[in-house]
Nucleic acid binder design. Structure first.
Lengths: 242, 242
DNA sequence: TTGACTTATATGTCTAGACATATAATCGTA
DNA sequence: TACGATTATATGTCTAGACATATAAGTCAA
């Protein structure tokens, strides 16, 4: 999206209009509630057609910077820092991006009929089979995160025979399931014995927890819980400019 | 964005085109890498002008569902669940939305010359004054979160005289600073004595930490740390369809 | 003052063209 | 075969219009 232009290239007109307005909003020249010039006024100012300013304003509206009201005009919105774009990177990508070596280790893997707890966790009602996987990701041979995953075999049958001893299940799924939606829940716990050992931290140390529930057009695919040492890992969410 | 339409209203054509394509992607009919029909083919299929299908495809590209390549065509992208929209609600809104009563309490407030630690935290270099605020938010009279905030008076001079004994500083800032950008960092810690007392939890209990750094066009506004009891609070981030 | 009706207007969507531009594919040459 | 030049083409942007529609504002009657 809106990159930092170095000024050498000539941006297109609608992008210039969008950037102009965005800057006035960000510097406070046009405060929240301020009415932006009407489309026909911008048409006159920039000497272009209405479709061009409309495209600029539509994108600003999509980014929640302005609100458009029929007959009334377009208005600067109040900043809503409750909505931020959170980057939850693929763990391997995250580690290699830091210039560290990625390591993966399968701890356990079971194929079983779904227990009541499994069905609860996957949000499915019918009986069926699941694959349960426990594994560990490490950076420079230091434990980075432990993963505890359930895959619904009704949705992903060939996960039954996949080899997860070398390829992480997340990566495998990414390449074998067409398109998914997901919901992430973030919380904090303290490490119990098992977790402390797996992450090589002290019992009682804080851990960041990411629970991800993934589905595809109303069918559950997988549920995964990732545990990170809480003092060394951080999630960064940047507002706007995604 | 894409709401569940009840079918009674007739969506506009470009929205229908966008929804049609989105559904084929989400159901897996068009898997990642699949080439979407060319614009001129969609023009023929829907019997509309090119600008209309272009608008639909442009929005799908903005949502990262497809990738557009000149001369080559438009292609379904691989799902990138590393990017999710995190809703960090205004605390009062979050609590009242749950049907619970919101409570606010100012714990401490100091106006001082910025210490080295203050300048570090706010990312400023010059000497100057800051306001340091500690306060607590509660739901149904149970501690919900404690807040530890620093405001840069060079950027927000009238914060020096604002009354934070009734209005939370976050809410005050929202109404007195035109527009801001922010970066959030999420981590986990265990409660120390002071935190445990403020949140009415046990020492050593897990806490979710949100550090928010807010600025406006390269000027620091405020830095805030929010501590939530880690076992009772959860952050939810939904991928796509925000 | 209040409520119902009318009107003006800014935005929402759409068209049938146009030229620009990046680049995949082809062709020609060393 | 390898590489450089050419060409074809899908997307990117833009225009000068058009009609639809929601709604703020004005009008008028109870």
């Amino acid at each position: 999206m809106s990159l930092a232009t170095d000024g050498t290239d000539k941006p297109t007109l609608y992008k210039r209009i969008r950037a102009d307005i965005e800057q006035r909003i960000l510097t406070g020249e046009w405060p929240p509630g301020h009415r932006i010039p009407f489309e026909h006024e911008l048409v006159a100012r920039y000497g272009c057609s209405r479709m061009t300013v409309n495209k600029a304003l539509s994108e600003l509206a999509q980014a929640d910077l302005i609100e458009r009201r029929r007959r009334a005009g377009s208005f600067v919105r109040r900043p809503q820092h409750q909505s931020a774009v959170l980057k939850i990177a693929d763990i391997r990508a995250e580690i290699t991006a830091l210039g560290r070596s990625y390591g993966y280790e399968l701890i356990g893997r079971k194929l079983r009929a779904a227990t009541a707890a499994d069905r609860e966790r996957l949000g499915i009602k019918k009986a069926g089979k699941v694959v349960a996987i426990a594994c560990r990701h490490s950076a420079d041979n230091v434990p980075f995160a432990v993963e505890d995953r359930l895959i619904d075999l009704a949705s992903v049958p060939n996960a039954a025979t996949a080899d997860f001893s070398r390829e992480p299940p997340g990566s495998w799924l990414l390449h074998h399931v067409p398109w998914t939606e997901a919901e992430h829940t973030i919380s904090a716990i303290v490490a119990d014995d098992r977790t402390a050992e797996a992450l090589d931290i002290a019992v009682g140390a804080p851990c960041l927890v990411i629970d991800r529930y993934t589905w595809r057009s109303a069918r559950t695919i997988t549920a995964v819980r990732l545990l990170y040492p809480g003092d060394s890992h951080r999630l960064v969410a940047r507002f706007k400019g995604g």
